[in-house]
């Protein structure tokens, strides 16, 4: 077995650090091949070294300027670095060689979404879906796009489609958890986010959200739930309007009682929020 096959396997099983160690052992001839550079770039990308990944991809492209896999890698790495213009240039070069490639179109759509060009991303994704109707990558992009547009119903429907194809998609469960959280359905959010953590426990922020969803179900946290559900600013505006309205209607006592209750609820929510933060830590 050649070392490159081992490297490929290590990358496939989520061990990019080990893959990099294997790549370091390659002789100079093998290390300079396009495959080795691609694998090194991929390993760098998966260890959070986007700059190094860009370097690897560019080195490979010097020898093979039209290599679609390297152009794709370069685009992903540039996007990871935050250079969306360079990422777009790389993916457009790749699309120049394979205009209907669904993976390339999905990557282009991701870049457009990050740049806030949702309409254009939608058009690109429509082309991608026509080209590869069964692509899970394209479906995931569609879900993200629907969520970014604020169309949670569509995002939810598409996520159920994704989970029907791949019941153990951590991202799918995470999306449903986020939607449930927005609706204030804490038990569903806890269940979905917990499943996402079980499948991919490395994401601390998802685990913290799942923990928060669990803790917030306790009775003590009802004021926090209340504010989370309706948002702090609208709730405050509604409360002040009600107090002013009651006073205007001559119901001074009711306005006073409501105002006092409101202050207690606010103090309670503040204490509960602090306690929640403490518990999450």
């Amino acid at each position: 077995m050649s070392s490159l096959e081992l490297v490929e396997h290590l990358l496939g099983v989520g061990r990019p650090q080990d893959a990099l160690r294997e790549l370091e052992r390659l002789g100079p001839d093998e290390a300079g091949t396009i495959v080795a550079l691609y694998l090194r770039g991929y390993a760098h990308l998966n260890t959070g070294q986007a700059d190094a990944a860009v370097h690897d991809a560019q080195a490979g492209l010097q020898a093979a300027p039209d290599d679609i896999a390297l152009l794709y890698l370069l685009s992903v790495a540039q996007a990871e670095r935050g250079d969306l213009a360079a990422a777009e240039a790389a993916i457009l070069s790749a699309l120049g060689h394979a205009a209907d490639d669904a993976d390339l179109l999905a990557q282009y759509a991701r870049i457009l979404m990050r740049a806030g060009e949702l309409e254009k991303a939608g058009r690109v994704l429509a082309t991608a879906r026509a080209s590869a109707p069964g692509s899970q990558d394209v479906l995931r992009c569609h879900i993200d796009l629907a969520y970014l547009r604020g169309d949670t119903a569509e995002a939810e429907g598409l996520t159920h489609l994704l989970l029907a194809e791949d019941a153990e998609s951590a991202r799918g469960h995470q999306m449903l958890g986020a939607i449930a959280l927005e609706r204030g359905d804490l038990p569903a959010a806890e269940q979905r986010l917990g499943e996402a953590v079980r499948l991919e426990p490395v994401h601390d922020e998802v685990a913290d959200t799942a923990r928060a969803a669990r803790i917030l179900q306790r009775p003590y946290y009802w004021p926090v739930r209340f504010f989370n559900r309706f948002g702090a600013a609208p709730t405050w505006v509604a409360a002040i309007c009600l107090i002013v309205g009651l006073r205007a209607a001559g119901l001074e006592l009711a306005a006073g009682l409501f105002g006092t209750t409101w202050l207690i609820v606010c103090a309670w929510s503040w204490a509960a929020g602090s306690r929640l933060e403490h518990q999450l830590r």
């Binding site: 917990g194 953590v197 426990p201 685990a207």
Partner: peptide, 11 residues
Amino acid sequence: LRTARNYTEFA
């Protein structure tokens, strides 16, 4: 250990 905590808490 943080990842292990996440995993053991939910799985």
